[in-house]
Structure formats: C-alpha cells, structure tokens
C-alpha cells in the first residue's frame, strides 16, 4: 500500500523532460551552426583549395554513411511507435538495428580516417603542417567537424543502449517512454547534422 502511495507522489513531468531535451538540441544546433559558418566563410575565401580538399574524400563512403544514418533515424522512430503500441519485441529489434547502423557509420569513419592517417594526413602531422593555408583549413575543419559528429554518434549509442536495456526490463513501456523519446530526439539530431555535413564536406563542385 505504502509503495502504491509512493508511486503516486513520484514527481514526473514528461512534457518538461521533452522540452529540456529540445532546448539542449537547440544548443547543439547552434554549436554545429557556428562551425558551419566558419567553414562557409573560409570556403568563400579559399574556394579552390576546399574543392581540391573535398576531392580527397570518398563520396561513396559519405553516401553509405548518409543512408545508414537516415535508415537508423527511421528505425529509432519505429522503435518508439512499437513501444507505444506495446510491441516490445519489435521495439528491441528496431533499437538493435539503429545501434547496428551506428556501428556501420563508425566503421566507415574508421576506414576513412584510417586511410588519411596512413598517408600521414592528421592534425599535427608533418604533412598537414606543410600544407598551404586553404588546404590546412579544409582538413582541420574536416577532422574537427566529423570528429565532433562521430563523438555524438558514440554518445547516442550509449544512450540508446541504455534505452535497449530499459525496454527489455519493461522500465520503458507504453505508459512511460520519455527516455526513449528523448534518446530518439538526440539520434535524429545526429542525423540532422550529417544531412548538412555531407553536402558541405563531400560534395563541392
């Protein structure tokens, strides 16, 4: 009985948590927005160098990663629907698929960065220090922006793994799912940023 009362007294504000998550997403958008702006101004200044720099990046890997993130964005949205419709099994499959796509993304990033490192192209390397200013700016921004984005992927994976465990143990259910909702919002943010990063970095004509 006392447990029952405690349950009713528990503070719970789902709308508030979701609003908080959105406010956090706004700060993230402005963080990456600032970087996009720095990128744009230098691209105007060193257009030729940025074009040459982008030719070093693989459009195929970039496109595969775009597809992986778009697909994972859909699966995590489906996971939320599944939880709301009390389909636990489907929800777990969908969160699992999202995590798999995240791993695919990171693996591709590893291949991509690995090849650059292999050629001696990484921040602080002799090759990079010897580049002229335009190329140096392009590759510095490339490593910083994709690195920060990959860091967000890792954080998102941790968050979604927590959601996976909680769906499994019924702590996330069709009555309380705000954690999964917020985790999904974060994951969509990661997707949103990539939607702009891909054409800006990989597709420069």
């Amino acid at each position: 009985m006392s447990e029952h009362i405690a349950h009713h007294d528990e503070h719970r504000d789902d709308a508030g948590s979701k609003l908080g998550m959105w406010l956090f997403i706004f700060t993230e958008l402005l963080l990456f927005g600032g970087l996009f702006l720095v990128y744009s101004v230098y691209r105007l200044q060193y257009h030729q160098n940025f074009h040459e720099g982008s030719l070093e990046l693989s459009v195929t890997i970039g496109a595969i990663n775009t597809i992986a993130l778009l697909f994972s964005s859909m699966t995590i949205a489906m996971a939320l629907t599944a939880v709301q419709r009390q389909n636990k099994k489907l929800a777990l499959i969908m969160i699992g698929l999202t995590l798999l796509m995240a791993a695919v993304f990171l693996f591709n990033k590893y291949i991509e960065w690995g090849a650059k490192f292999h050629h001696g192209l990484y921040p602080g390397s002799e090759l990079m220090d010897g580049l002229d200013r335009g190329h140096l700016l392009f590759f510095s921004l490339y490593f910083f922006m994709t690195g920060l984005h990959a860091f967000h992927i890792i954080v998102g994976m941790i968050l979604l793994t927590v959601c996976f465990v909680k769906v499994k143990s019924n702590k996330i259910n069709n009555d309380r799912f705000v954690l999964l909702e917020n985790g999904a919002l974060y994951w969509h943010l990661v997707d949103l940023i990539w939607i702009f990063l891909f054409p800006l970095l990989y597709l420069i004509s």
Binding site: A63, I67, L70, F71, M74, T81, Q84, F198
Partner: peptide, 20 residues
C-alpha cells in the same frame, strides 16, 4: 497513443533517400 504509423515513417525514409 498509437505513435506514428510505420508505413508513414517508411515513406519518409524513401523520400529522404530520393533527396540524397
């Protein structure tokens, strides 16, 4: 209560792929 329909989410994905 019933969330966004799976079909709708699928259609949005197709649209996003097309734009990519």
């Amino acid at each position: 209560h019933s969330g966004t329909d799976y079909m709708l989410l699928g259609k949005i994905l197709v649209l996003l792929m097309f734009f990519t």
